[in-house]
Each structure stands twice: as structure tokens, then as C-alpha cells.
Design a protein around this nucleic acid. Structure first.
Length: 227
DNA sequence: GACCAGGCACATC
DNA sequence: GATGTGCATGGT
């Protein structure tokens, strides 16, 4: 398949998803700081559990940079407990906050004014910030055009036959970014739609059901039993 | 009760 | 470099 055909295919899938589900209005957060915190809390975690943790943080009024960096780690862990992995996530949040404090004086707007590629490298050096979390922060908190790759992206697009099943993060991200124009709004919506269809149709073991908007192109099309 | 969720770091081979 | 494991709560 030529590059031109791949680009058309990716845009076609995007259109199908948008027609089926409409705009997803991501990221679900009121401020860039809330988005950044949510990006850590949602690591391998259902969003509904993250919402409970965010609600706790809001109720205790610690969802700002200066408040969160100053509260006791034990208290932070207690508040984010519903999002799971609360001890490790407390450490990861603190690593991230200390990085922003030392490098950007605790200012997200200063941080996002830095060269995006350089900032991405810096974020990846923070313990607890991997490629998906870094790209989520860059795209959804900083509005920088980085395509976010997650488990659903890999599963869905390998089933579509567009990427290899053993492609790594960078290879998959390059695949999208080399075949789609670098557009923050577009990347925002595309990833959100992938998560949406992933939750409904493309879970790890569940086969696609007949209502899947891209089923006709899916290699793993399986008849669903009556359960 | 098993499986899954919008990952990541680290140990081991 | 690839593979396995710990981290943990809450919904289905």
C-alpha cells in the first residue's frame, strides 16, 4: 500500500469514528494542571477511578501546582487511592512536580513555551513518565501536536493490518505522524475516538461486535455468541 | 471470582 | 533486546 493510500485509509477510519461517535471533547479536565495530573493517574487505570481521585483532590483544594507540591506525600497517596497504584503514583506525581519546579519554576505555561521536542525528551527522563504519559501531557495539556499511542491504538490498527503486532511505541507514533498532518486538534480527536471505540468494541479478549463502525475492515472480525 | 483498565520501571535471562 | 513481574482500586 502506498503512503498516499495509507493516509487516505487513516483519514477514512477517522471519519467513520467521528460519524459514529461525534466529538469526544477531550481531555476531560478544567485546567492544564488537572490534565497533567490525570495523565499520571490514568496509567493502566479505568478513567472512572481517576475521576474519583480527581474529585478528592478538588474537594481538598489541592489541584494546583503550589498546593500539591507542598502537601505531605502520605496525604496525597490517601487522596488518589481510588485510582489504584497509589503509592507508586504518588512518587511519580512528585517526580513530575519537582521536575517542573526545578526546570520551569513551577510554571506550566513556561514549560509549554519550551521547544516541544526538547520538552518531550525532558519529560521522558522523569521517573514515572513514559512515552504515552509524556505525549498525553504535551497534546492535551500543552496543545502540542504529538500523536498519543495507547494499547487500543496498537490493538485496533494491527487488527486493521496497518501496523505490525510487535511494533513499538515510537514506530506506531511515527506511522501516524508521517501519514497525517501535524494538527493538534486532529490528533486530539483521533486519539479520543480510538479510546472510545476501544472501550466499546476492541477490548483485549472481546471480539468486535456487529455494530463496530470499522468492522468491515477488521481482520479479527468474529461472530459474537449470544452471551 | 476472573478479567480488565487511557503504563511504567526494574529484574532477570 | 526480549520477556516477566510488581504496582492496586473498582467496575463488569
Amino acid at each position: 500500500m502506498s503512503d498516499k493510500e495509507i493516509g487516505k485509509r487513516l483519514k477514512s477510519i477517522y471519519r467513520l469514528l467521528l460519524e459514529a461517535y461525534g466529538p469526544q471533547h477531550w481531555w476531560p479536565g478544567d485546567t492544564p494542571f488537572e490534565v497533567l495530573v490525570g495523565a499520571v493517574l490514568t496509567q493502566n487505570t479505568a478513567w472512572a477511578n481517576v475521576e474519583k481521585a480527581i474529585a478528592n483532590l478538588k474537594h481538598e483544594r489541592v489541584l494546583t501546582f503550589s498546593r500539591m507540591i507542598n502537601i505531605a506525600p502520605e496525604k496525597l497517596a490517601l487522596l488518589i487511592r481510588p485510582s489504584g497504584y497509589f503509592n507508586i503514583k504518588t512518587k511519580r506525581l512528585r517526580h513530575l512536580l519537582l521536575f517542573i519546579h526545578s526546570q520551569y519554576s513551577g510554571s506550566l505555561s513556561t514549560m509549554f513555551a519550551a521547544d516541544p521536542a526538547w520538552l518531550r525528551q525532558q519529560l521522558l527522563e522523569v521517573n514515572g513518565i513514559g512515552p504515552e504519559t509524556a505525549d498525553s501531557i504535551l497534546l492535551y495539556a500543552g496543545e502540542k501536536p504529538f500523536f498519543v499511542v495507547d494499547a487500543y491504538t496498537k490493538r485496533i490498527f494491527s487488527r486493521q493490518g496497518l501496523i505490525s503486532g510487535n511494533a513499538d511505541y515510537r514506530a506506531i507514533q511515527d506511522f501516524f505522524m508521517e501519514n497525517l498532518s501535524r494538527d493538534t486538534r486532529f490528533y486530539n480527536e483521533y486519539h479520543a475516538l480510538i479510546v472510545r471505540i476501544g472501550k466499546e468494541h476492541c477490548k483485549k479478549v472481546r471480539p468486535l461486535c456487529n455494530a463496530c463502525p470499522i468492522r468491515s475492515r477488521c481482520r479479527r472480525r468474529v461472530q459474537v455468541s449470544n452471551t
